[in-house]
């Protein structure tokens, strides 16, 4: 199955996309994942191809199913990961994503998480580190369907700009049609704490190492608890080294 027509930037989910790069990749193959009732599954994606890269993923979780998705987005030029998740009763979904971009890279994580039935839990942690003229985007909608009472959806979205010329777009969205729903989102764009940097440097760390140490802790939040936490962290650190 493929995703049909080439989108334009008028499509909400593509408003920050590199449409020129997308055109070279179109049509995208849709990756479909179905986790049956009570089962659990994990997937780690390291988007690190040198050219542009885009993925469309559709995940359906049946009653009580669990899914842990981790993403390291460090694709060259353009990298897009779009995920749609539908949660059955009591299902659990976690996304931990880090995007590291410099130069003129455009990276994005786009999610739609649908709490179709009651008592499902979704958590999303996205950390972006952006240097140069890079753009990092998170568009994430959490939709709680009518009758999906007791839903719990959280989005923790943070971006760190290493240069003033980099851009972070973060748009967490909630659409709630049920009662007794717990949804929280936090989103922040910041720069490295200069006081912290001076403190680390005053102990002998060269500026690049001081930055790396502080960013390492920031990125680690996306991979905490992952089955392949160490491998993801190491790959992220290598990419980070190239950015600083």
């Amino acid at each position: 199955m493929t995703v049909a027509t080439l989108p334009t930037r008028k499509d909400e989910a593509f408003r920050y996309a590199d449409v020129g790069a997308l055109e070279t990749l179109w049509p995208l193959a849709l990756q479909q994942i179905h986790v049956p009732a009570g089962a659990s599954d994990v997937l780690s994606i390291v988007a690190d191809s040198s050219g542009p890269e885009a993925r469309e993923i559709e995940i359906v979780l049946d009653e009580g199913a669990q899914f842990d998705l981790r993403v390291l987005n460090i694709a060259g030029a353009y990298g897009r990961i779009a995920v749609t998740v539908t949660l059955g009763k009591g299902a659990r979904f976690h996304l931990g994503a880090a995007q590291l971009a410099g130069g003129d890279q455009t990276l994005e994580v786009v999610t739609e998480v649908i709490h179709a039935e009651p008592d499902a839990v979704s958590t999303q942690v996205v950390r972006s580190v952006l240097a140069g003229h890079a753009t990092g985007t998170y568009l994430g909608k959490v939709a709680v369907a009518r009758g999906a009472n007791g839903s719990d959806g959280s989005q923790s979205i943070r971006a760190m700009l290493l240069d003033r010329t980099a851009t972070a777009n973060a748009r967490p969205e909630l659409e709630i049609f049920a009662d007794d729903v717990k949804c929280a989102h936090g989103c922040a764009v910041g720069e490295l704490d200069p006081q912290g940097l001076f403190y680390l440097e005053s102990r002998g760390l060269p500026p690049a190492e001081a930055k790396k140490l502080m960013l390492q802790a920031f990125i680690a939040e996306a991979f905490v608890g992952a089955a392949d936490e160490d491998a993801l962290t190491e790959a992220a650190l290598n990419a980070l080294g190239a950015l600083i």
Binding site: Q195, G196, F198, Y199, M214, Q216, A217, A220, E221
Partner: peptide, 8 residues
């Protein structure tokens, strides 16, 4: 005033 460095 020693500085706090979260996560490190």
């Amino acid at each position: 005033y020693p500085v706090e460095i979260p996560g490190v």
